[in-house]
Design a protein around this nucleic acid. Sequence first.
DNA 1: CGCGATTTGTACGTATGTATG
DNA 2: ACATACATACGTACAAATCGC
Lengths: 236, 236
Amino acid sequence: MNRRYLDLYEDIKNSIVEGNYRPGEKLPSENEFCRMYGTSRGTVRKALDLLAEEGLIHSLHGKGVFVLEHNLITFSFGGIVSFKEAAETSGLKFTTSVSKFEEVMIDEALSARTNLPPGKAAYKIFRVRKLDGERVILDINFFLKDVAAGLSKEIAEQSIYEYIEGELQLKIGFAKRIIHVEPATSADKAHLDLKGYNLVAVVKNFVHLHDGTPFEYTESRHRPDRFEFTNFARRR
Amino acid sequence: MNRRYLDLYEDIKNSIVEGNYRPGEKLPSENEFCRMYGTSRGTVRKALDLLAEEGLIHSLHGKGVFVLEHNLITFSFGGIVSFKEAAETSGLKFTTSVSKFEEVMIDEALSARTNLPPGKAAYKIFRVRKLDGERVILDINFFLKDVAAGLSKEIAEQSIYEYIEGELQLKIGFAKRIIHVEPATSADKAHLDLKGYNLVAVVKNFVHLHDGTPFEYTESRHRPDRFEFTNFARRR
DNA sequence: CGCGATTTGTACGTATGTATG
DNA sequence: ACATACATACGTACAAATCGC
């Protein structure tokens, strides 16, 4: 497969992140990009579309394409990003400890909660994310055992996504997220330094493979004062 | 301007919303759409891209394009949507009351909070959203007076966006959002039925016109138990 | 003021690659 | 092996907004 537009996208994105193109500046015109990369204008525009979707650039008819204000932390959360990736691009230094790794059967109740098919086995994982010595995030994962076969506690301590995409060569497709604020559970109280808070911010992730099959459900439970979620939207 | 891809997008979207194409079903192929609408494949693909971005459909190489599970509430929040639009598509019956409408000067402190330029005048509006007789959302808006000239309390009771886009013919471009959980302020306590909660879920909106100029800052302050934010993401 | 040059937006057409059945 | 369907890439043309002369 070719996918030159992805190379172009990453190239331009890197230039923006590194500050070669700065917020407020005008990018080279589409036709200049065509010359620079030896591609067609359609390919250039496809790369620019991706950047616009992420909120890094904005095109003005007749004027040009401009770099928007951005904070690196912000736009890393635009798509589906593993915790490791997000931590790296944000620059924050988290440490992770796996406090539970077990196999469970998905019964009706669990299926209703996770959207995973009942009757199947799943890995159930608790991971605590510590920042500045405080336990501020509890990640609760369920991965279908069929799909994520061979997951281990050791892998969970590193990056599960690297394993799934790298080793198993699975293709992750899309995810639906719901954010809620919920009462802290006994698990939250046991695993987090809640400092008296009795609510947690919860990001529920329903993740599907590229072929559409659901394979992961994750709840990210945040101490409310350390929670932040960013988002970019365009009006049509 | 032509924008046939937008017509196509809305047509197909309506068909999905109305249930003519149901979740799990396969859509007509791209070439069929070409015949149906008498357009080129590029135009069809552009319409499908928009639907895929919203999480309504998913394409499988060699197989076809399929409708995803969706709840109408969910995808209405994908882009920039006025409260009125969101309420309508969600089917929930909110009532709005304007409890404050005044003009303020943007000083340094307010500029830091809103990202609006210091030294300018702005409309400051409090609107309380009531659901099932309970005051659950407090919207705090700041609109640049320069831009949104002529705003009134009466307009705020209806739809500010209809006024801005309809009457003033302004084009809204994009918005950055940040979601936080914050301690309830005295304003929250005064305007909401907090039922003992001492935290609120806050969605901060930094809205820009199409030409990039910031013109609106809005804080949507939700009672935590009635807060929900949905999101769709794809892995690249 | 108009005119032309530049730049992005839209639409169409064609060709080829790749996955599926 | 073949037809179908989506994915990528190139090319062309014209529309519409902007800017400088």
